[in-house]
Design a protein around this nucleic acid. Structure first.
Lengths: 129, 129
DNA sequence: AACTTACTACGAAACTTTTCGTATGTGGGG
DNA sequence: CCCCACATACGAAAAGTTTCGTAGTAAGTT
């Protein structure tokens, strides 16, 4: 209650959130540099994106220094969940099992990862009873 | 070769593809009605979407009857894969295991589904050797 | 103090996606 | 034959997203 539903971030926003999650609080400059490792992006473009995200409360910022420092305002897991639920709904008709099988089929999970997944499955089964 | 990379469908397009996958070939009217079960949508809006999708080769249509009949031109699995890969990349830093665990954690897979997933895991392990 | 550099803020252009009004065509039923 | 119900086509408005030019401001440098 009173909890605002978090908006699905756009693709660009997500790229930036990704950087913030990975690198922690960052200046515009730092974000822009990271962004440029993947694709050329003007400095003011990055700045603008961060400002927009700030207005949407996707990020918070510290204005104490001359160069503002931004960091993600939302949990990586929360967003993952929002996006995953949406994909599940829109592309998999809600069937989590289908989705899981597609991922496992396409990707090459490591031995370690397989083990973790199995453990989780066991845990779910145990809790089910 | 000569194979066009499939474009990522937009959200609206995906909603419509969903309907076509579920119901098979459909008239605009039928699609529109389904769409309206979820959210109010004008008839011409749906028509336009289908026309756009037709131009993008996301759907094919049979014009023999007065009411054209549309059906998806692409495989559900293909699209699922495109979207999943993208999500994996943009929101999960490529970690399939993380993604899987999120899904399994959030959703309530049935006993049957769990079994299927386990079998798939076993199969992957066996093939790994 | 004037000059340079490194920022932020703002606004608008360029694109993309979504929605819908209007025009137009066609095949019966009266 | 004429109208009406029901389609499609088209174009453009509306809404959302992304990019960037320009202006302004504050902090050091000479």
């Amino acid at each position: 209650m009173g909890k605002k539903t978090l908006p699905k971030p756009t693709d660009s926003e997500l790229e930036i959130l990704q950087i913030l999650w990975q690198n922690g609080a960052s200046t515009v400059k730092a974000v822009n540099e990271k962004l440029n490792e993947k694709k050329e992006t003007g400095y003011t473009t990055t700045l603008k994106m961060l400002q927009i995200m700030y207005e949407k409360n996707l990020v918070v910022r510290d204005e104490n220094e001359r160069s503002h420092v931004y960091k993600s305002a939302i949990d990586k897991n929360q967003i993952q969940r929002v996006l995953l639920d949406k994909l599940l709904e829109t592309a998999f008709s809600g069937s989590a099992a289908n989705l899981v099988m597609q991922v496992l089929g396409n990707s090459k999970p490591s031995k370690e990862e397989l083990k973790n997944i199995k453990e989780l499955l066991d845990k779910i089964e145990r809790e089910r009873k």
